[in-house]
Amino acid sequence: MTGMSLMRPAVKQCLLSLQRNGTVPLQKQMQLMGQISVRNGGHEKKMLIQPTRFEWTRFKNDLHFYLMLGLAPMVAFITYANIFIGPAQLADIPEGYEPKEWEYYQGPIKRWFAKYVYETPQKEYERTLHFLHEKREERYWNLLDKKVKSLMSDRLDYRGWYWVDVDKSIKDDEKAFEESNTRIAGSR
């Protein structure tokens, strides 16, 4: 751009010089003719410095992209399911057929979710029973622990939840040694 604006007066000067029988006027002569090439560097309109909006624009574009990426196929699928498949109709159950739990839902999308995504009610029931059994067992052992501690404090007992195997012959030898010591001490 700067090169083009610098070339403009030179081109005009060349064109004017060709019109005047090939004489090339100097820059001073161009100024006398009324064509002054002055570059003051701008005008009163100045570029305002603003904080960037790049992150906001990028977030907005990504949000729109991913919403449309997921929303457009979902809307198309829901429309297709509701127009072409439609809600389920009540009918008599054939003899000897046991319906699955997901067949009781009316809409095709709810049936699909009940069949492939959600847990069966029997499985949820069994899981709840297991959870309650675990809690009951934990409560039982906590109460038993409290009872043991209270009995130990009442009877001034100590913790004896372990067993140390001792050879009977060693105990018999200790007992015999103590008896012999008591006989010797008693005879004096």
Rank of each mutant, 00 (worst) to 15 (best):
M4E: 10
M7D: 09
V11Y: 04
K12T: 13
L15P: 00
S17P: 06
R20F: 03
N21L: 10
G22I: 07
V24L: 13
V24D: 04
K28F: 00
L32Y: 01
G34W: 00
V38G: 07
G41C: 08
G42R: 05
H43N: 13
E44T: 04
K46V: 15
M47N: 07
P51W: 01
T52E: 05
F54H: 03
E55G: 01
F59V: 13
K60I: 10
K60F: 06
K60H: 15
H64I: 02
M68S: 12
M68N: 10
L71N: 03
A76I: 06
F77V: 08
F84M: 15
I85Q: 06
L90Q: 08
L90N: 10
P94T: 01
G96T: 00
P99R: 01
E101W: 10
E103D: 15
I109Y: 03
K110H: 01
K110P: 07
K110Q: 13
R111D: 02
F113N: 06
A114R: 11
P121L: 02
Q122L: 08
E124G: 05
Y125G: 00
E126H: 11
R127Y: 02
L129S: 06
F131N: 14
L132R: 08
E134A: 13
R136D: 11
E137M: 07
R139D: 11
W141V: 11
W141C: 14
K146T: 10
K146D: 15
V148G: 05
V148L: 14
S150D: 08
L151E: 11
L151F: 08
D154I: 05
R155K: 15
R159C: 14
G160N: 09
W161P: 04
V166L: 14
D167K: 11
D167W: 01
D167A: 09
D172F: 06
E174S: 00
A176F: 08
E179N: 04
A185S: 07
G186Q: 11
G186W: 03
